[in-house]
Nucleic acid binder design. Sequence first.
RNA 1: UCCUCGAUAGCUCAAUGGUAGAGCACGCGGCUGUUAACCGCGGGGUUGUAGGUUCGAGCCCUACUCGGGGAG
Length: 375
Amino acid sequence: MFQVLGQEGRARRGEFHTVHGVIHTPVFMNVGTAAAIKGAVSTEDLEGIRTQVELSNTYHLHVRPGDKVIKQLGGLHRFMSWDRPILTDSGGFQVFSLAGLRKIKEEGVYFNSHIDGRKIFMGPEESMQIQSNLASTIAMAFDECPSARADRTYVKNSVERTTRWLARCKKEMQRLNGMADTINQSQLLFAINQGAVYPDIRIEHAKVISEMDLDGYAVGGLAVGETHEEMYHILEETIPFLPKDKPVYLMGVGTPANILEGVERGVDFFDCVYPTRNGRHGHLYTNQGKINLFNAKYETDPRPIEEGCGCPACRRYSRAYIRHLLKAKEMLGMRLCVLHNLYFYNTMMEEIRDALARGEFAAYKRRKLEGMLHE
RNA sequence: UCCUCGAUAGCUCAAUGGUAGAGCACGCGGCUGUUAACCGCGGGGUUGUAGGUUCGAGCCCUACUCGGGGAG
């Protein structure tokens, strides 16, 4: 159940109640594709940096270790020892990102495993079955994510197929939630809006899926090659046609600036690999913009990554030390950087919620963006 | 003392007598529902020294210097 607590323009603050606890929105979900936040980050660490939701991936966990293994171990929550909400992506994005290793048909998608090349079939029913076995809090509908440069005809056909897939997803999820041996019989299902950069296709699709009554609505297929302006425009055009009483999730986005712009346009959920991947690559988020700790100018810098930051890296360690760890390929270096970046994102979302509660989001956003000039 | 192998980028090494390269290191950049601790770009050289042969030498010849291995 989603409760909107307050609005400022289209930006809104809310609570999403699930069997694994309340999610305070706007929220940034921390990406742990293979049931782990890359960079040696434990679920205990996540509790320490106030992560609300962890995101994992249907396709990756199906390939390894196998969703049946995870079901046997009591589901993803028990398997990875995390009792707060988990959202599983459906494998739809892999249809896009593993291009070359797959073939799309009406019944579903044929993949070649990126691990061992073995042939895998995944359609709407398979994706729901796998996610039901994983027993995540929120399952995502199985969709196709067309390229931002795909032509209009392709996108239109693709979106229509995604709608048909959504109906199959919903039906299968209802069946699975009613089965006695299902671990999470309250598993939620989010729909995914597609349509590349064509507002009319986006709007038409938003209207159709809104009538299908899902637990939440995602906007997918953005930040895949189009400009930021195109992405913001699509959000402005599309979100008004999604149900007001359901959470809106902008998939795979993004930079701190993208998130601020998204919140302003009515987005409640975000996720992105940036804080984790950039952390592993030594790129750190600060309120003064992004810094690259590999740069020589930090070799003797005694300051923390960010002055006044309460994260596990900044509380004890200098830029110079963490740079050394990164250069020496010591695992601790990546770990500290990932923790800092996730803490930065989680903290920014708290600040956004606080600002919304005070009705000062617009001012907060302006201040934050001015600070991060070099992001 | 003799024999032998070697000496090329910061390091480890490539280069039928015909425009000296790679990996690592160093410097910088990119990454948006993770095939990504990844990918890309860049600066770097009197080829140990001195001669010789040749149209042309990192490469062939001579001497020397330094280093590895062996013999005595």
